[in-house]
Amino acid sequence: MLKVAPPHQLAITAACVALNLAVGMIANLLSLPLSLDTIGSLTGAALLPPGLAIAVGAITAALGWAVIGPVYPIYIGTQISVVITALVLMRLIGFDRLWKAVILGASVAVVAAVVSAPVTDWVSGGVTVRATTTITIGGLPIGLADKLVVALIAWALVRRRLRGGA
Rank of each mutant, 00 (worst) to 15 (best):
M90K: 01
L29Q: 11
V56R: 13
G69W: 03
W122P: 02
A131K: 03
P141N: 08
V114M: 02
L30T: 05
N20Y: 10
Y72P: 03
A151K: 00
T78Q: 15
L63E: 08
V23E: 09
N28S: 15
V119C: 12
W99M: 07
V115W: 10
R130F: 06
A145F: 11
A46P: 04
G57D: 05
V67Q: 06
W65S: 15
A154E: 06
T78P: 03
A18K: 13
W155Q: 11
P33C: 08
L98Y: 10
A11M: 09
Q79R: 06
S31P: 07
W122D: 04
Y75M: 15
F95H: 10
Q9C: 08
L42Q: 06
V83C: 10
I137Y: 15
A61D: 00
L89A: 11
L87Y: 03
A109H: 05
V56T: 05
I39E: 05
V67C: 08
T128W: 13
A5F: 10
A145R: 13
V88R: 06
A117P: 03
G69A: 10
V123C: 12
V102G: 01
G125S: 09
A117T: 00
V111S: 13
L42P: 09
V150H: 02
L157A: 13
A22T: 14
T128G: 12
T134E: 01
V129L: 15
G24A: 02
A101G: 02
I76V: 15
V111L: 10
